[in-house]
Design a protein around this nucleic acid. Sequence first.
RNA 1: GCCCCUAUAGUCUAGCGGCCCAGGACGUCACCCUUUCAAGGUGAAGAUCGCGGGUUCGAAUCCCGCUGGGGGUACCA
Length: 524
Amino acid sequence: MNHPTTDLLDPPAALLPGLRPGTKEVRVRLAPSPTGSVHIGNVKTGLYNWLLARGQAKRLGLEGSFLLRIEDTDRNRYVEDAAVQLLDILRWFGLEWQEGPDVGGPHAPYVQSERLPIFQERAHHLVATDHAYPCFCTPERLAAVREAQQARHEPPGYDRHCRVIPAGEAADRVAAGEPHVIRFKTPRDGETTVDDVIRGPIVTANETLEDAVLLKTDGYPTYHLAHLVDDHLMEITHVIRGAEWIPSAPLHVLLYAAFGWEPPAFIHVPLILAPGGGKLSKRHGATTMAEFREQGYLPEALMNYLALLGWSFDATTEIFSPEDLLKKFSVERLSASPATFDYQKLRWINQHYINHILTLDDLTSRVIPFLARAGMIGANAAHTDHPDYAAVREATALLKDRLETLADAPEHMGPFLVEDLPDYDSALLVPKKTEPAAAQRGLEATLALLPGLDLTDEAAAEVRLRALAEELGLKTGQLFMAIRVAATGRTQSPGLFGTLRVIGRERLERRLAAAIDRLAAQPA
RNA sequence: GCCCCUAUAGUCUAGCGGCCCAGGACGUCACCCUUUCAAGGUGAAGAUCGCGGGUUCGAAUCCCGCUGGGGGUACCA
């Protein structure tokens, strides 16, 4: 099917799924509820929203806005301070919103609890137009109904008891102050189609839908009412949200119709699964953004990994900077099936960014807070003129290839940053197939020739110590291992000469002497 | 129970009717590098494309059923 003429006349908007002809702006939103720390899954949907508006839309020559809206309509689950932390962690992650609670915007306020009158007005409008009705059923009655249904093995659900109350009578009872909710008058027959961008049309028989509560007894709206009214008022063009919303999407389409509004495009992104199946929980590792940050993951590595968990660019590309993602993301390439969270691969990507992508100075400044928290360096080392900065930078250069996360830094970099080594097992000083006496001789000889050794010249130092091994009749590996352990307290370290260079003559002398004492003190 | 979504190696994925007896990555294993451990390099194993029916000259790709997985079924979002 070709339409040669109209194709040419079509605006670029036609290239973006779900965008209505003539629309020049893509508006999306992330609408978290402040009920605690931000789950990684929410961040993933937030990322896709951001990438659509700030990446794909802009590439097509459209305006693109990403908004943040706080959905705090559940008074029972509200957590003090959660909203503040939410904004902080999303910014840390790298998302930027053009409109939101802290930055304002043309549709302020962006906090739903501050928009109550709007929702109440819309709910009553629905009642007035016969699309909704007051329901006076008590929680006790609803529970009893549900129990009876279960006993009879019927599908649970509201029995529409109050739907048949004459409007006048209902209005009187409301006027009299009787507690009630407002329920949607879901059509009893017909079917509703939800056009999901990544799945195509999803058709649902209306009879399987319930008369959902729109406005609660306390006057607060439910998600169904609140998100929809706000999305319309805030001119959201694409709703990108978790797949757990698919079952209630038909209700939302019906609600748009009841209001006489055009629904946005729906993009339901697949959920994240836990390694063994089921929900991702604490048991598997980090689940909230704050935990990933504490555990030393880089925001760009996390973003890279999350982007790949349900989206791909092509058959081979795996590493995407945030800029790359903005340049390459498209909703057409989102996948429809849920993906298992693979911590191992995340660690690999994190390591890759640490070792191959970040500049040394960048890495250094990121590693510093972790080292400071471990008490290895001064608390204010974060800037380049602090005396500890140069030391950390050198150690970082030497050890970055073995850091999977920033949190690994203290363990690996400790010997290079502290003055004296923590206690270690003296037996490590004696390499395999060697006697303590031989190790001691090796270390003594090394200590003796240290004054004449330029540790900053790694190649020269290596030549000299290789010769020493031969002189002593030791294998290079044996001598080197003894020195390594004396210098670091461990059998594993970066290349010996880089290690010695960074530790420096002064500390090395002390550590060699200490090791010699240890060996001398050992029972022969 | 009912409704909905989904299905390529252990995991994430490429594939949108012939180029695929299926490509990439993580993980695994081996080798190389080497003073240790990493990192890096090279290579290997691993998928009867969940199963069964169709459609078609031809299916991983389209359709149906089954099964597995996931989600929903709240005055939570």
